[in-house]
Write a protein that binds this DNA or RNA. Structure first.
Lengths: 144, 144
DNA sequence: ATAAAAACGCAACAGAGTTGCACTAAATAA
DNA sequence: TTATTTAGTGCAACTCTGTTGCGTTTTTAT
């Protein structure tokens, strides 16, 4: 059993339709290793130790990962998308924590969304998103 | 009792500290008349029938209105802020409806946020935001 | 009416994301 | 294995949203 039979990222990519390219594998691996949702910029930073990946390619790769359900996209308060690897399944009715100090976004566990909200006539709900704003652990300790 | 003793917008502005300028009064009036949260662009459009207001001034005016608690800012999915007049009070623990078709954002009524969410160690919640994504009435009828 | 300060308007800039198009490299066929 | 097809990549240029600096105009207080 060799060290890298095929990385988890590669396996996930192969299971989707589309080609298994190094960009996809590197990006997905970065997301899988991340402990929180990353911006385009953060991903680029983590990647470029292994050679620079073109900005546009990264954007397109992220789009592809989202389309395939391998990653999901969260909108922060700073008008920058953040991405993280999703379990693979589409089911992510989970909450997000957005730190108002440093802007970081963390995924929280499943939420039992048992709230009765009255929608206006004709409106159809597809997806409920819950985000909690506050201060993350690091920022809380850093004072300020 | 004349037609416009002083508009509601003017009254709200006068009650805040800061100057009562035509830009502020026009922008706030536009927000008060709107049936949903408006983007910078939409506000500009509604305004320029009465003479063009500088882009930067509009941005600064909106910031000021938000600071004063006269308006509040909602982040959409399209990385554009949306604004609407808030009742004046700061208290807006209400939900938003975001149409995935046309991108419009509507404010929904108060939400009884009775969900127990376990935050990671050291994280502090300040504010809970709930958004429901789906299709608005207009888009639902337009088919597609 | 006048002076001080707050707003305004312009120009230039910054960051995030997109589009078009030629080139490269996976996957497939031969 | 090599050739072929076409998805994916990289570059340049662009759009859109929002911001900064700075000189000029309005408010407001005197």
């Amino acid at each position: 059993m060799p060290d890298t039979p095929t990385s988890p990222a590669d396996q996930m990519i192969r299971a989707s339709r589309g080609r298994n390219t190094s960009a996809r594998s590197r990006v997905l691996a970065a997301l899988l290793n991340a402990e929180r949702a990353l911006t385009h910029q953060e991903i680029a930073q983590r990647l470029d130790s292994q050679g620079i990946l073109d900005r546009v390619t990264l954007y397109r790769t992220l789009d592809w990962l989202v389309d395939q359900g391998l990653a999901h996209r969260v909108s922060g308060e700073d008008r920058a998308w953040r991405f993280n690897a999703s379990g693979g399944a589409e089911a992510h009715e989970h909450a997000h924590f957005k730190c108002t100090q440093c802007g970081q976004v963390f995924c929280l566990g499943e939420v039992s969304t048992a709230f009765a909200i009255q929608l206006p006539r004709g409106f159809q709900s597809r997806h409920i998103e819950l985000s909690i704003k506050g201060v993350c652990n690091a920022c809380a300790h850093r004072g300020q």
